[in-house]
């Protein structure tokens, strides 16, 4: 499942997240917001209407507590969101394997959000605003999103573009290496990123290793984000909702 899908010169960027190394510090969430020009919370925002393309979820279980960084899982097969978008605002890029969201084309119908089993998509419920002065910190390589459109993690596509441009300028073709903001910010190096098509990358190796799993593998969406844990109960959580009311407090 991790091996080459084709013999072309395409990349399949993927991630391996070591849940055991995540301390829930949230540095990745802040780094993501800074890199991708996600505005601070609107006055009315809450944990259900806020925009956190990278979101660390605290999972409490009888066996202990685990922190699960959740972002777009970049589904490869039957990509749920891309299949349902009525106006092609979501596309799976064959050159990178990244599921792209094109805000300028988005109608804001939110059908893709209903389709995503990972709840990794976020809607701009209001106009994005930055406190005075903070607009100076905006990243010029990423366009901020307007009100009324959906957004999500795109593996820091702005950084991919920069890496690609640099490679082209140096006369190189084919997949490029780059690092998304969350990977860079994680102090415990819980996230590994790279090209799954390239057998030399550590992400490829880690994804194959014992203890690596994908979330909701059973529904057949083939995510390119893998998780790892030594703890049995964490690996067991890769399946579905337990369906019991225990642990329903606080998320």
């Amino acid at each position: 499942m991790i091996a080459h899908k084709d013999n072309s010169n395409n990349a399949r960027y993927g991630m391996v997240v070591d849940i055991d190394r995540c301390t829930g510090c949230g540095a990745c969430m802040i780094a993501c917001a800074v890199e991708n020009n996600v505005p601070p919370a609107a006055p009315t925002a809450n944990e259900r209407t806020g925009i956190t393309p990278m979101r660390v979820i605290r999972y409490e279980h009888a066996g202990g507590t685990a922190f699960v960084p959740m972002m777009c899982q970049q589904c490869e097969d039957e990509t749920p969101c891309a299949a349902v978008c009525p106006q092609n605002a979501v596309e799976l890029d064959p050159a990178t394997g990244i599921v792209g969201q094109i805000p300028q084309r988005c109608l804001g119908c939110r059908y893709c959000m209903a389709a995503c089993p990972y709840h990794a998509r976020y809607f701009n419920w209001g106009d994005p605003t930055w406190p005075d002065g903070l607009e100076k910190t905006l990243n010029p390589s990423v366009a901020p999103r307007m009100r009324g459109v959906v957004e999500k993690c795109n593996f820091c596509h702005g950084r991919w573009h920069e890496a690609k441009e640099l490679a082209v300028a140096n006369g190189k073709t084919g997949p490029v290496e780059y690092t998304p903001a969350c990977v860079e910010a994680c102090p415990s190096r819980a996230i590994t990123f790279g090209d799954l098509n390239n057998s030399a990358t550590s992400v490829n190796e880690l994804a194959r290793e014992k203890g690596s799993f994908r979330l909701l593998d059973s529904i057949g969406t083939a995510p390119k984000v893998y998780y790892r844990s030594r703890r049995d109960w964490v690996r067991a959580a890769s399946g579905n909702a337990s369906g019991t009311a225990e642990g329903a407090h606080r998320g």
């Binding site: 009525p86 106006q87 084309r105 109608l107 804001g108 119908c109 809607f123």
Partner: peptide, 16 residues
Amino acid sequence: DVGQPLRFWYTFAYPN
């Protein structure tokens, strides 16, 4: 209900 109602015609122009 949609976030960008003025873009309704995109569905006809760029249908998936």
